[in-house]
Amino acid sequence: MIKVANLTKTFGTKRAVDGISFTVERGEVLGFLGPNGAGKSTSMRMITGFIPPTSGTVTIGGHDMLENPIPAKKLIGYLPENAPAYTDMTVQGFLDFAAAIRGLHGDAKRAAIQRAVELCFLQGVLHQNVETLSKGYRHRTCFAQSIIHDPEVLILDEPTDGLDPNQKHEIRQLIRRMGATKAIIFSTHILEEVDAVCSRAIIIDRGRIVANGTPKELRAKSEWAGAVTLRIQGMAAAAVAEKLNQLRGARKVTTATEGDRVTVTVFPRVAGDGDLTREVMEATNGWQVEDLRTEEGRLDEVFRSITLPDTAGKEAKL
């Protein structure tokens, strides 16, 4: 549904987005991760046709965004960053406008508004002015606008930003449900969301894609992937470390002592090495092991290790 090829955007001398390519099919929810200023919003603005790319192409459902924008835009629902909405209208009026400009009229329009209002829990504020809404409601109003025409492609720029935990949960559920039949891209810097919602994730840094895979695959890149953590009673930390360091698959061992218990983590030489667990179990045979578990890897650690801190260039303001 969404095909992005060699997308590049330069602002002056700065390369905000530098040759990114990926595709998203129907039924996929793609998480778009990256530090602030990495080029997430700029990419989304190009995908939705708001700003033209310096080079590269965006194709939505077979329509080229540059050459044939109207049919391409028809397929898209877009929630921009900070969820802008016309402040001088009521929620009802705003959704009415959004539906009309999407070509809905009469009963179809009424039904579409009703559906979006129910999905986004806006019943209580329907006749309130957008200006007087709290941030969460305003966000949901803009979200409702993006799904009002039941689009095949959804582009959501930080859809859960500024919501309370309950609302976040609802929106994630909603995205995941809709992800079954649509192609969805959503950006976030909350890593739990990737696990909760995404079928695939892309990490973007300084305008380039630095990782692309399922959350599980990404996690496997962590040095924690396949690490074995165990708690042992009645042994000295040094002795434990020495013994475990000799294991073939072990790269390094860290220990922490707490009372008469030692917590040890053995990191694998090869990330995600499944044999390490067996090796550790054999080596510790006869010890008083209270707890032993294999780590799946940590997304935040992967994120930190492959993105550089402080790319904090200013994002393009339009």
């Binding site: 603005r45 939705t48 046709g49 708001f50 924008p69 109207i70 049919p71 835009k73 028809k74 898209i76 877009y78 921009p80 960053e81 900070n82 802008p84 909405a85 016309y86 402040t87 959004a98 400009i101 999407r102 070509g103 803009c142 606008q145 339009l318």
Partner: peptide
């Protein structure tokens, strides 16, 4: 439109 950011909404709607 530019200050509030609705320009982004307006110009990503299927209109010229």
């Amino acid at each position: 439109e530019r200050r509030v950011g609705t320009l982004e909404l307006l110009l990503t709607m299927p209109i010229a």
